[in-house]
Each structure stands twice: as C-alpha cells, then as structure tokens.
Simulated scan of single mutants.
Amino acid sequence: MPIRDQQKIRRAAVAGRFYEGEALDLRRRMAETEAQLPPPAADARTTPVRGCILPHAGYLFSLGVAMETMREARHGSYRNVVLLGPSHYVGFHGVAGSTYTSWRTPFGDLSTALTLQEKLEESGNPLFQISDAAHTQEHSLEVEFPLIQYFLGSPEILPLVVGGIAPADLEPLAKMFAAIDSPETLWIISSDFTHYGENFRYTPFGESAPPEELNRLDREAAERIAARDLDGFCRFLGRTGATICGANPIALYLALLDRVDPERKISGEIVSMADSGEVTGDYSHVVDYAGILFR
C-alpha cells in the first residue's frame, strides 16, 4: 500500500478553461443553467439514483446535459461518490487511483474516500494501480467535482482513471468494484459521446455531420447503455467505430451492474442529449453529449 502524505492536494488543472475559476462566477453559471432546465420528473424524489453518465466537456457546451442528469441525485443520501473517467493524457492498462487525499475546485476541497481505495488496493487485482500521473492533468474527472459540490455538498470521493482494458478484464474489475458498492455510494461515469471530424479521424457521414444522423448514432448507443445491454453496446462500438471516449468506463459500470444487480432492479433512462454544434454551428468538428441516469 502506498505511503500517503498527511495532506496531498490535487489542484484544479482546468479551472478557468473548462469552467469558471472563481467560486461566485461558477455558482452563478450553474444556478442560471439549472433555472433554464425543464421541470424534473415527478418521481425524482422517490426513486434513489445509483449512477449517472455525465459529459466532461467545457461547461459552455455540456453543463445543461450534466446538470439535468445530476440534479435528481440531490435527493439521495450518499457517503461516497466513485468516479470513473477515461484517460486523455497517460497511456496504461487497467484502472488507476492516486495518492491524493483531497481534490481542489473553486468551491473548496473534496476528500478522498481512502477506505474505499484501500479495499481496491487490498483486492490484489493486477489491473488496479496507483498513478498520480494519470490524474494530474486529467479533466474527465475534474469537471464533475463542482457538480458534486453543487448538488451533494461534500461527500468523500474516489476518482479513478480508466486506461485500456480488454473484454476479459471486465469481470475481474466488476468483482473488485462490487466490494465498494452500496446504496450509499453514487457512481459517476464520465464520458462524452461521438467526436466527429477530421481531427478525430471519424467522418462516416462526410466532411460535415448532419445533426439528425449524429443524434441517431448516439441515441442508439445511449439506448443500449440505458437498457444495460453490455454486449449490444460493445457490438455497437465494433460496428460503428463510434468515438465515445468513455466507452471503457461505461462498459465497466454496466459489468458492475450485472454483478451487483442480476435481477435488474436498477434501470437506466436517457435524460438529456446535446452537441457542441448547437453552440458553435460547426458540424465538421462536433462532439455529442448524453446524460443517462440509473436508479
């Protein structure tokens, strides 16, 4: 088990770029965005939320989707939030925790759920490692932290970066994660959906993506995820090559649900979808976003 400093803070890497760097400005943006959302579902207060799939783009593009999805979790009582996000900067195999004891945002610090991480370390699973390098610049987890603080206050969090994984890795990782799952744990899976354009090397519809075709593509993916169809989701990725950056974290969460809820009492629903083209008007370089809730 790594020796941890008494206090080791992971400082915000993308505050002031992906979201406002000052607390008042950030809270104002989030409050104004929430005020513009459609009314929540009638059963939002009665059905506990167990997991959310949220985008991790700049708030200018994806905050509405993230907040509309995440707001239903504010009625829950969570001791911990476990986050799974893809690695954008460091290549490795498996899942990486860190030695950070807290995570700083403009709203203050969130503490690491060290007890949960120690359980993962003690599992002896070779697919789990400690790597601060995987976390230092990673935005896929960081952009979710202010949402946790806005809606939930200050639960302990366990940010985990997901690197490359093979299909055979899903079952042992799901078994490892099952040991830290509970009704008092909220899972946040961080993923943007299709990245379209020459820069992403993905142009199945031509130079520019027709918005309706892009929406159709990602709605099919979102429907398979919400239906907890892990095999169907993997087949979709193989058939379309869709550039869903958090495909591995999503697959891991679906495998976890299969393990902890074989009776399928936890169900998914698509809450919101959008794309960056709605803001920029550019569909030759566009990213899709989907918010999916599990309860």
Rank of each mutant, 00 (worst) to 15 (best):
E278S: 14
S140W: 05
F107L: 15
N199D: 13
G153L: 04
A174G: 14
R28I: 08
T136I: 15
P262D: 11
G238R: 10
A13Q: 04
L37N: 02
A44F: 11
Y78I: 10
P2G: 04
F233P: 01
V14S: 02
A274D: 15
G164K: 12
F151I: 07
P183R: 05
H139F: 13
Q6W: 13
E34S: 09
Y19F: 12
V162C: 14
R235D: 15
I244V: 13
M176Q: 13
R239Q: 14
N80C: 10
L230R: 12
P48K: 04
V286P: 11
P38R: 12
L141D: 00
E207A: 15
A251N: 12
S123Q: 10
P167L: 11
S284P: 05
D218W: 01
F145K: 10
Y59C: 09
H93R: 14
I244D: 02
A73Q: 04
G206L: 04
S208I: 06
G268I: 10
F294L: 05
K8Y: 12
S191H: 08
P38G: 09
S131E: 07
S87V: 11
G232H: 02
G16E: 13
R28S: 14
I244M: 06
Q149N: 07
Q7E: 12
E198N: 08
A226C: 07
C234I: 12
P2D: 11
D181C: 05
N80P: 04
A226D: 09
L173H: 03
S98R: 01
D192Y: 08
I188A: 10
L237Q: 04
D5I: 00
I292M: 06
V161I: 13
R104V: 03
Y289G: 01
T203I: 07
G197K: 02
G58V: 03
I270P: 05
W103F: 15
E184W: 03
A222W: 01
E72L: 05
H93W: 09
P106H: 09
I270G: 05
V90I: 15
R224G: 00
G108D: 06
F61T: 08
P39V: 08
V287S: 10
V287K: 10
Y150E: 05
Q36T: 14
Y89E: 08
D5M: 10
L254Y: 03
G246S: 02
T185Y: 03
A166V: 04
